[in-house]
Design a protein around this nucleic acid. Structure first.
Length: 573
RNA sequence: CGGGGCAUGGCGCAGUCCGGUAGCGCGCCUGCUUUGGGAGCAGGAUGUCGGGGGUUCGAAUCCCUCUGCCCCGACCA
């Protein structure tokens, strides 16, 4: 490939719309252009990189026994109605009508279509297990697309689906995907964390996400350095230090607290600590009100609430609704005497005594309230944990960081096979629903994550395996026939050795060529210039910015050697 | 969906308050010089000023309206 003939539209100025690093660099380096909100055109550089990522995925999926499919993005409504997700997906699903007025949608994921194939095609336990996958476009009408390729409305996903006869088989398929995903992300040069996750609208019993640490991400991950416990904040748990409650078998007593509404105000006014307060929140779930109780210093985790009440259709109650329900305003609420709504209490309130809560009467609170005795509630995990709390497994201090989700694997069970009638005959000739798993990788997010992880003031520093080119021969004087002849020969030799090389033969000044090569993140640059007249060339490695001058005849082997060791340099970043 | 911001040549911006028919940097084209870290000189091209409507002798600028994009929040597989 000659640079002079390629379309690599690099920019000097950063487009004003770009906020996160990967977005800025992908635009500046000529990888992508925006067509609309959350819709991007992939230019040749991005295409090269993404094809390399896809091929890594393909190789590893095939090696694990996966079979590649290619399913339609355009889906008739019936399969989605059969699974019940035509309604569940709501406004996130792109819906269209055909000329006859029939409902269709653009696929957000492909459990339904794969299950419909399994329904007809898989008949007996003898056909199992199966692992089916595809690398294909997904369409999701995101409420808020953002951050370049990180959150878009059309993207490439590798999705795979496992079909097993029983739970043990599903466990094997799930573990297999866990291993395969680690190989894929390792080969792509990413640093990632596998975390326990919430299944959400996908359904199923257990799920695990693969996360790349980055402030450009949107998910928070809780991680224990010592024992390796890691979970999405939406489901993470921690060990709490015991709280010293006031001694004695005291009776609830009303206390006048004029104008004291917040936890801080009440704590100060009553000369106590937030740990001794019961925080009362009111939520409306599916139009039904719930009273939620937490320790004064804790925050509610809405995803945990959603899990506890079995619905994601929830919101905080309005002040007006609260007044109707309690006859008091927020800031004076509590569980005593509440009979008209369900009460959920966080586990941290279990076994406590002599606490403080609102009296359901403005400007009054209750002291000496003991959960379980003075009110009843269902105890469950509701609180969002905080950095520095103790690891649930080993007790070490937990860290919390922001991440990009690049993969998510689910144990679905029989949710889809049951609703869609995908059954097989077991050993006894009995018809049973096939046990499924579902596994996704965000292909474009791998590229964006790599850019987020590895960059400097000069641009991207891409891992060799996913860089659009592995090496660039920068010809300082393309008008010098001897230099050109050497460069072309070297180019062919590198190509013959399997090195994906580009020859920068443009009539540009050297500085422009250096800047461009660094911006687009090519691992190794061979500079052919005036030193060639003394028989030497220069080799530069992008990751560590090391420059060496070597005899021209050693250039081929040195390039290969540097590329072989390049992964270590990326890891050092 | 709520809040905030933006829309002027390929990219970055000024001009808008206070109306007079569009400018700067980069990029692009031509020529000459230059050639190891985003060159210099000279010349040149490129604009429905997001769309529609209105006010006015005259609108990038004032008024109304629509659309698009970005950010925060809500939401999210």
């Amino acid at each position: 490939m000659r640079w002079s003939q390629l379309f690599i539209p690099t920019l000097r100025d950063v487009p004003a719309d770009a906020e996160v690093i990967s977005h800025k660099l992908l635009l500046r380096a000529g990888y992508i252009r925006q067509l609309g909100a959350g819709i991007y055109s992939l230019l040749p550089l991005a295409r090269r990189s993404l094809l390399k990522i896809e091929n890594i995925i393909r190789e590893e999926m095939d090696a694990a026994g996966g079979q590649e499919f290619y399913l339609p993005a355009l889906n008739p409504d019936d399969v989605w109605k059969a699974s019940g997700r035509w309604d569940v997906m709501g406004a996130n699903m792109f819906r269209i009508k055909d000329r006859a007025g029939r409902d269709l949608c653009l696929g957000m994921t492909h459990e339904e279509v794969f299950t419909s194939i399994a329904k007809d095609g898989l008949r007996s336990y003898r056909d199992l297990p199966q692992i089916w996958y595809q690398i294909q476009l997904k369409f999701r009408d995101e409420p808020r697309p953002k951050s370049g390729l990180l959150r878009v409305r059309q993207f490439t996903m590798k999705d795979s689906y496992s079909f097993d006869i029983d739970k043990a088989g599903l466990d094997r398929s799930f573990d297999l995907h866990d291993q395969v995903y680690r190989k894929i992300f390792d080969r792509c040069g990413l640093k990632y964390t596998a975390v326990q996750a919430v299944s959400g609208s996908m359904g199923g019993s257990e799920s695990q996400e693969f996360m790349v640490q980055s402030d450009a991400g949107e998910d928070w991950v809780v991680n224990c350095h010592k024992c390796g416990y890691a979970a999405n904040l939406e489901r993470a748990d921690s060990k709490l230090d015991p709280v010293e409650d006031p001694e004695g078998d005291l009776k609830p007593a009303e206390v006048h607290t004029p104008g004291q509404k917040t936890i801080e105000e009440v704590t100060a006014y009553l000369n106590t600590v937030p740990e001794n307060l019961i925080k009362s929140l009111v939520y409306i779930v599916e139009s039904k009100a719930w009273l939620l109780l937490l320790r004064g210093d804790h925050q509610l985790c809405e995803m945990k609430l959603a899990g506890a009440v079995g619905s994601e259709n929830l919101r905080p109650a309005t002040d007006l609704e609260i007044r109707d329900l309690f006859g008091a305003d927020p800031g004076s609420l509590g569980p005593l005497g509440v009979s008209n709504l369900s009460i959920l209490a966080d586990n941290s309130l279990q076994g406590r005594r002599n606490m403080v809560c609102g009296a359901n009467r403005n400007d009054y609170h209750l002291e000496n309230v003991t959960p379980g005795r003075d009110f009843t509630a269902e105890f469950t995990d509701l609180r969002e944990i905080q950095a520095g709390e103790s690891c649930i497994k080993c007790g070490s201090s937990l860290e919390i960081f922001k991440t990009i989700e690049i993969g998510h694997i689910f144990k679905l069970g029989t949710k889809y096979s049951q609703s869609m009638g995908a059954t097989v005959l077991d050993h006894n000739g009995k018809e049973i629903p096939v046990v499924m798993g579902s596994y996704g990788i965000g292909v474009d997010r791998i590229l964006a994550s790599a850019v987020e992880l590895y960059n400097d003031e000069n641009g991207m520093i891409l891992p060799r395996s996913i860089a659009p080119f592995e090496a660039v021969i920068t010809l300082i004087r393309p008008d010098n026939p001897a230099h050109m002849e050497f460069a072309e020969k070297l180019y062919l030799e590198l190509r013959n050795r399997g090195i994906d090389t580009i020859l920068d033969d443009r009539e540009e000044r050297p500085g422009v060529k250096f800047k461009d090569a660094e911006l687009i993140g090519i691992p190794v640059r061979i500079t052919v210039g005036k030193k060639l007249d003394e028989g030497s060339v220069e080799i530069f490695t992008r990751a560590d910015k090391k420059m060496e001058v070597i005899p021209a005849e050693k250039c081929l082997e040195e390039t290969i050697r540097l590329l072989e060791n390049y992964a270590d340099k990326i890891n050092g970043l």
